[in-house]
Each structure stands twice: as structure tokens, then as C-alpha cells.
Simulated assay, not measured.
Amino acid sequence: MVLVNSTPMLKEARKSGYGIVAFNVHSLDMLYSVAEAAAELDAPLIVQTTVGTVRNLGPENIVAAAKAASEEYKIPMALHLDHCTDYDVLIKCIRAGYTSVMIDASMHEFDENVRRTNQVMDVAKFLDVNVEAELGKVGGVEDDIVVDEADAQKAVPSECVKFIELTGVPTLAPAIGTAHGIYSGDPDIDFERIEKIANLVDVPLVLHGGSAIPDEDVRRCVSLGMSKMNVSTELKNAYSQAIKEHFEDKPNALDPRQYLTKAKQAAKDLAQSKIKLVGCQGKASEVQALYGNEYKDGALIG
């Protein structure tokens, strides 16, 4: 079984005007929850993990679980490493079998961001691995990366063009006013900036901080060219809240099979709502065709 490079599915999503959700999972049962959710809706899927989750579970274990899920549910699935600043960890994940990685050098000056991105591109472009990079600074907290609201910076459209020319990176996450975590108020999304960037570059754009953005704003972002939407905090919260409610109702019911079943269902329900929101339900067959002979009878082979 193989996992797929997410570049073709994201290009198709951008061309066809829908989005693909990338779910941050922190346990193997969360991974299966989102895979089952996508399979029931016949949707392509990106599963992603933070560096902290990689260190906790081990990249080989995560890859094995993702491959097993792709085999069981027979959907095109990519496995992505989110917000990695450590080149060695990134290479370790590629060697383990990740099919997409994000090199986050957005905290550096433009030229240094280019240099670090090219360092990753020099490896990934020969291995059929998608690379995502960020321009500007998305606010909030993601694992151990903390960007204060005052330090958050929106991407400059002309710099996005230059960055892609200098790196050839196939997916770009421009900061456009969203933030990681749950918003305390309405997000300040710069739709005009998204449109300008999308009109200047043809690579799929990535919407970071997708948790709890109002539905109408998500749909507008997707219509303007955001092809990948990251969802982390909402999924984690739904999963954890189900466990919390289990023990509030039944404090002595300590069987993990009981509370984890509830947590998985909550995560699955949340995942399906996000898949429908970006419009990728029913798109798995179209995406599957992009990968040609890697498929047989709807299942990945390798």
C-alpha cells in the first residue's frame, strides 16, 4: 500500500473550486476517525501531524497506521508533517514515508526562508513528496511555535510570486489574517489579499488556522483559491470533550473502549462537517484517477 503525494489532489481542488481538509491528529485512533469520516463521504484526505506528535508516537508508527487506513478505507490519502522548523526531523519523516512536509521558516527574513525552503526542495523534488512553505506569520500557538498577535504579519502578494519563482515550492501557506487555535472574536481575514495572491500564483494555497472560522468565511476562502484547510484545535477539542463528558456522566466507567469510542465518534462527526464545508465529498474517485496505475479496483497498491 502507498500513501499519495498531495500535490495532484490539491491542484485538482484548486482547478475545480473546492477544498481538501487536512486534519491534525494526535493519536492513532484519531487518524482512523478522520479516515472513516472521509471514506463514508467518498472524499480525498490529508492527515497531518505536528512535530510533537511525531516525537510522541514515532514517524514509522504513524506511517504504518496511515497506510493501513488507506488500505482499509480505499481513499486517496496523503500524510503531511505540519509546521516543522527542524530539518533533521523533516528528513526523518520523509524517510519513514510521509508524502508531504511543511518547512516553516516564516519567522526568518525572506532570503533565509527561501534558503531553508530550497534545502528541503532539493531533497523532496526527487522523492515525489509535496512541500509546503509559509510566507508572513500566522498568529497563535501550534505545538511549540508561538506567534503573538502583535507579531503576526500578512503575506505580501508580490513576495509570494518571487518566493515561488525562487523555490518552486508546490504549495504555499500565505498568512492572511487567520490564527491557530480558537478565536476569541471574529477572525480578521483579508479576502482581498487572498484574491490578489491567487491571481498572481497558480500553486494551491493553504488556509492555516481553519478551526472555528465561520462557515461563510471558509467557503469564501475556498472560492478565492484556498485549496487546503488545516483543522487542528476543533478536532482535538471535540475528541477531548467527549472523554470529559463520559467521565462527568460515568466517573467510574474506566474502560477505555467506552470513552475512546465516544471520542472517535465526536472526532468523526466534526471531520465530516468540515469535509462537507469545503465541498470535497464525492471527489475521491476524481482524485484517485490522477494517480493512474498506483490504483487498482479503488485501492492503492504498492
Rank of each mutant, 00 (worst) to 15 (best):
M229W: 05
M229V: 09
N230R: 01
N230P: 05
N230W: 03
V231F: 05
V231Y: 03
V231Q: 02
E234Y: 07
E234Q: 08
E234V: 02
L235Q: 06
K236N: 03
N237A: 01
A238N: 15
Y239A: 06
Y239G: 05
Q241W: 00
A242T: 05
I243Y: 08
K244C: 02
K244V: 10
E245Y: 02
E245N: 10
E245Q: 08
H246W: 13
H246D: 11
F247P: 13
E248I: 10
E248L: 14
D249S: 14
K250G: 06
K250T: 11
P251T: 06
P251C: 08
P251S: 08
N252F: 14
N252I: 05
A253Q: 13
A253P: 09
A253W: 11
L254A: 09
D255A: 12
D255L: 13
P256Q: 12
P256S: 09
P256Y: 13
R257Q: 11
R257D: 09
Q258P: 00
Q258E: 12
Q258G: 07
Y259W: 10
Y259K: 02
Y259T: 03
L260C: 09
L260P: 07
L260Y: 06
L260S: 08
L260Q: 10
L260W: 06
T261A: 14
T261H: 11
T261E: 10
K262L: 15
K262Q: 15
K262T: 10
A263W: 05
A263G: 11
K264M: 15
A267W: 12
K268D: 12
K268L: 15
K268W: 10
K268C: 13
D269T: 12
D269R: 07
L270C: 14
L270W: 06
L270A: 10
A271E: 01
A271I: 02
Q272H: 01
Q272E: 09
Q272I: 03
S273I: 01
S273W: 04
S273P: 00
S273R: 12
K274D: 01
I275A: 09
I275D: 08
I275G: 06
I275L: 13
K276P: 04
K276S: 08
L277P: 04
V278M: 02
G279P: 02
G279F: 01
G279S: 01
C280R: 00
Q281S: 12
G282D: 04
G282C: 03
G282Q: 03
G282K: 00
K283M: 07
K283I: 01
A284E: 14
A284S: 15
S285R: 14
E286D: 12
V287R: 15
Q288R: 15
Q288K: 15
A289V: 03
A289P: 13
A289S: 15
L290A: 05
L290H: 09
L290D: 04
Y291W: 00
G292R: 12
E294W: 14
E294R: 15
E294N: 13
E294Q: 15
Y295G: 13
K296G: 04
K296M: 11
D297M: 01
